[in-house]
Amino acid sequence: MQVIVNISLKEGVLDPQGLAIARSLNDLGFQEVDGIRVGKRIVLEVDETDEARLHQRVAKMCETLLSNTVIEDYDIDIPDGQ
């Protein structure tokens, strides 16, 4: 099954990349942009059909390697209709 992991910086962690992109958008005339946080999206193909077990295993992957929980949060999405 396909699993999508979204990794984002925790609140309060400075995101200089997001600040630079927001500044650039403002300079390009998109004055309405007040802030940007940049994250990562990881798409996994996993050999597992049981959704609960899949979720549990992917959460373990996030804790073990995919995210650094000192500064990052993760969110696991298993798209419907697979």
Binding site: V13, L14, P16, Q17, A20, N68, V70, I71
Partner: peptide, 17 residues
């Protein structure tokens, strides 16, 4: 060393990018 947890914290992107 920070990623192993032997030392605390993390090194993020330089403030000036």
């Amino acid at each position: 060393l920070l990623e192993t947890g032997l030392l605390p914290g993390v090194l993020v992107k330089n403030a000036g990018l």
